[in-house]
Write a protein that binds this DNA or RNA. Structure first.
Length: 454
RNA sequence: GCCGCGGUAGUAUAGCCCGGACCAGUAUGCGGGCCUGUCAAGCCCGUGACCCGGGUUCAAAUCCCGGCCGCGGCGCCA
């Protein structure tokens, strides 16, 4: 039996001609033994099919079939036959069954929802055979493709920035140190500085879909130490409103792609139907942080003037918008300077230029935003400060050492247009779209503070 | 980093509060048997577990202490 003759199960089920001989291959999902007849459900990436092995048709195939263990890998050659009793109305009557790899007893049940997430991740190669569990992985791929396509259609150039860097983006302690020959280095927590370089270098609009590393010991269902960041940066913006419009375009493209793509739509219909109901509005509502404070205070949540909303605040704000305006996505704008990184532009006059005496009309607020998706932060962005003098002052104000940002500051002295950008958490978008209770479901092999294996 | 909850067969759980009749129940898996139309196959038989250490007690899965491991909440963030 030649594997070259192998056909996709979906193809045989759809286009196969009864009476013809076909070869399929895949995993043994179930074996039902009935004495002289054995039913084997074989699954490949495209679908499932029933194989029937009868003693009086092929004694050899029948004997092999009755010995099969679940999740073994087989190739089956047989005649396609119509059968009212078979799933899909047709089945393959086995002439020959070849066991390519015999599976030992399984530690978890692939079809089961019984095993806890921790155990499922330990045996991820079995776990993902369950289509429900593979869906978020496929959805992430489809969403990333859609983002990529959107960017490229809107004049963005893909860049590949270093993941081995000399210093932390924000000077914080949340980076993984590594040894780089005889130097200390870190895993990049964000492509931020390099995206900006792309803009300043004249590429004007750049994007990157790549890994980001955070050395935070976050014990939550929505954090990973390694995740995929959908990042972009664009020059000559009129204001951060331009940036938000790009985020809107990309996020909507990601959501709609997952809903419509033929690789994900059938899975959503079967396992995540509520994900199909989501309709991203043309324009996502915007709420300034100060309005958000008011709304939350009215809802009974006490918040300080320069405080971040916190998990509770974001969740409540998301609820308010979903309930009052039917909006699953909302931008929160003008975050306090106190909670934003040094490169964020503060509210000032002439944000497109570099005045000698910048006039900060509201020095405690910035041209930045977060995107909340069903009450969870899925993107952060804003306009960046592009004036070297102001930037340096802001670095000092954040208690950082300008020497650590030498090349970064230098860039702005050689022609830096006004610009802005954002980072979108791929896994978070998938998580919120599918309604996953844990972000680890959205990553094939997730990394969190305690797990390094497998 | 701080706080909370939890660890019983491969997996998921009951039992724990109120210690004894628990050599630990159930489901599923796994092994064996019967069955030529199953599709959550069925029926029969079998298999397999109290995280580790210490303490209290006549008696500990159950109560106490320590450790290890897991999960989550907050902080931080995508």
């Amino acid at each position: 039996m030649l594997l070259e003759e192998r056909r996709w199960i979906a193809e045989v089920m759809r286009e196969g001609r009864p009476g013809e001989r076909y070869v399929i291959a895949g995993w043994v999902e179930a074996v039902r033994r009935h004495g002289g007849v054995v039913f084997v459900i074989v699954r490949d990436r495209s679908g499932r099919m029933q194989v029937v092995a009868k003693r009086n048709v092929s004694r050899e195939a029948w004997e092999t079939a009755r010995e099969l263990s679940r999740e073994s890998v087989v190739a089956v050659k047989g005649i396609l036959v119509e059968s009212k009793a078979a799933l899909g109305g047709r089945e393959l009557q086995a002439e020959e069954i070849l066991v390519l790899n015999e599976a030992e007893p399984l530690p978890i049940e692939p079809g089961g929802k019984t095993a806890s997430l921790a155990i499922r991740l330990r045996y991820r190669w079995i776990d993902l055979r369950e289509p429900r569990h593979a869906t978020p992985i496929i959805a992430a791929a489809v969403a990333a493709e859609a983002a990529s396509r959107w960017f490229s259609e809107h004049g963005f150039v893909e860049v590949f920035t270093p993941k081995i860097v000399a210093s932390a983006t924000e000077g914080g302690a949340e980076v993984f140190p590594i040894i780089y020959f005889d130097k200390e280095a870190f895993l990049a927590q964000s492509p931020q500085l390099y995206k900006q370089m792309g803009v300043i270098a004249g590429l004007e609009r750049v994007y990157e879909i790549g890994p980001a590393f955070r050395a935070e010991k976050s014990h939550t269902a929505r954090h990973l130490t390694e995740f995929t960041s959908v990042d972009f940066e664009m020059g000559f913006i009129r204001g951060f409103e331009d940036v938000m419009r790009v985020v809107e375009g990309v996020v909507t493209a990601m959501i709609e792609a997952v809903q419509r793509d033929e690789r994900t739509r059938p899975l959503l219909e079967e396992y995540y139907p509520q994900a199909l109901e989501l309709r991203p509005p043309k324009e996502y509502p915007r709420v300034s942080i100060d309005e958000a404070y008011k709304l939350l205070r009215n809802a009974g949540l006490e918040l300080g003037e320069d405080e971040d909303l916190g998990t509770e605040g974001e969740r409540r704000l998301g609820e308010i918008y979903e309930r009052e305006y039917g909006a699953p996505l909302v931008f929160v704008t003008h975050y306090p300077w106190a909670v934003r990184p040094f490169y964020t532009m503060r509210v000032r006059e002439e944000p497109w230029g570099c005045p000698e005496e910048p006039r900060f009309t509201n020095p405690r607020r910035t041209y930045s935003f977060d995107l909340l998706f069903r009450g969870m932060e899925v993107a952060t962005g804003g306009q960046r400060e592009h004036c070297p003098a102001i930037l340096e002052a802001q670095i000092r104000e954040k208690g950082l050492n300008p020497k650590a940002f030498e090349w970064y500051l230098e860039m702005f002295r050689h022609g830096a247009p006004p610009h802005g950008g954002a980072g979108i958490g791929l896994e978070r978008v998938v998580m919120q779209l599918l309604g996953l209770s844990n972000i680890r479901e959205a990553r094939m092999v997730p990394r969190d503070p305690e797990h390094l294996v497998p």
